[in-house]
């Protein structure tokens, strides 16, 4: 149930972000890859631990 709520929450957040000016969220499951991508693109990281 909680996982479902979290998925719904993340979907809603993604939708909210994509509707706005900040579209272009990249979803990664590897923290090192996320840091490398963020370093390369200059974008921030949203690290989610569940």
């Amino acid at each position: 149930m909680r996982t479902l709520i979290l998925l719904l929450l993340l979907c809603a957040v993604l939708a909210a972000v994509e509707d706005g000016e900040s579209a272009g969220v990249t979803w990664l499951t590897d923290l090192d890859a996320a840091r490398a991508a963020a370093r390369e693109t200059g974008r921030p990281i949203v690290a989610v631990f569940r």
């Binding site: 690290a47 989610v48 569940r50």
Partner: peptide, 18 residues
């Protein structure tokens, strides 16, 4: 680096690559 309240069931860090 990923230093948060480890008792939480959901934790989000908004951070820089550094």
């Amino acid at each position: 680096t990923y230093d948060f309240d480890f008792d939480l069931t959901l934790a989000v860090l908004l951070m820089n690559a550094d």
